Simulated scan of single mutants.
Amino acid sequence: MLAWGDNRKDQTEVPDEAETGVTAIAAGAHHALALTKDGEVVAWGDNSNKQTDIPAEVKSGTVTAIAAGKNTSAAIVGGKVYAWGATHATQKVPTFAQSKVVQVAVGTESLAAVKEDGKVIEWKVNNASYTNVTGATDVRALTAGAHHFVVLKGDPPQKH
């Protein structure tokens, strides 16, 4: 792994445990996450908002996806979203995002998740109420900007 750029919060100082065996990465404003092949999350950089304080439930489970926003981090364990940061060691997550979630994305002040059925929900940081995203069906990829989300819809491309 390689990280570069502004390093005022040590966010480009990749820890040894994230140097090899990493399957996914995510970056927030001044922190970063790595997902190892063993399903463990490694976090580093700025922790002023608790965004690198990985919750015990995430540490003890097998993580399948990660995401990072400005001051927030998220992971999926057993189909459930766990979120932390934005000054909360553990954030409130809507009931609807506590099972059958396959992807998660984090913006500056909100999160979104794709369910197994391809539908998307969105919620505000540390708020348990959510919104079903109209028109977001058959979603196969999700990403976040600071204040927006983008989804890729439809069937996966056919292999030739």
Rank of each mutant, 00 (worst) to 15 (best):
W4P: 02
G5L: 01
D10M: 13
D10I: 00
Q11A: 03
T12H: 06
V14F: 05
V14P: 04
P15V: 02
P15D: 10
D16S: 11
A18G: 12
T20M: 07
A24N: 03
A24K: 13
A24Q: 12
A26V: 00
A26K: 06
A27S: 15
G28W: 02
G28F: 00
H31T: 03
A32L: 04
A32K: 08
A32R: 09
A32M: 09
K37H: 05
G39P: 00
G39W: 01
G39F: 02
A43H: 03
N49Y: 14
Q51I: 13
T52Y: 03
P55E: 01
E57A: 14
V58Y: 01
S60V: 06
S60R: 06
S60Q: 09
G61C: 13
G61E: 03
G61T: 07
G61L: 05
T64I: 09
A65I: 03
A65R: 06
I66T: 04
A68L: 11
G69Q: 07
K70M: 15
K70G: 05
K70L: 12
T72R: 12
S73V: 10
I76V: 13
I76P: 08
V77H: 11
V77I: 12
V77A: 07
G79V: 09
G79F: 08
V81D: 10
Y82K: 05
Y82G: 04
A83W: 07
A83D: 12
T87E: 09
T87V: 12
H88K: 14
A89N: 12
A89Y: 12
T90E: 10
Q91S: 09
K92G: 00
V93R: 08
V93F: 02
V93P: 03
V93S: 04
P94W: 10
P94I: 08
F96G: 08
F96A: 11
F96I: 15
Q98F: 00
S99A: 13
S99T: 14
K100F: 08
V101G: 07
V102Q: 08
Q103I: 01
V104Y: 01
V104P: 04
G107V: 06
L111T: 08
L111K: 01
A113M: 01
V114E: 02
K115I: 02
G118R: 02
V120C: 00
I121L: 09
I121V: 15
E122P: 03
W123T: 13
N127M: 06
A128R: 10
S129N: 09
Y130W: 12
V133D: 05
T134A: 14
G135L: 03
V139N: 00
R140G: 11
R140W: 10
R140Q: 14
L142S: 08
A144M: 06
A146G: 15
H147Q: 15
H147A: 14
H147W: 13
H148S: 13
V150E: 07
V151A: 05
L152T: 10
K153D: 00
P156C: 04
Q158L: 11
H160M: 04
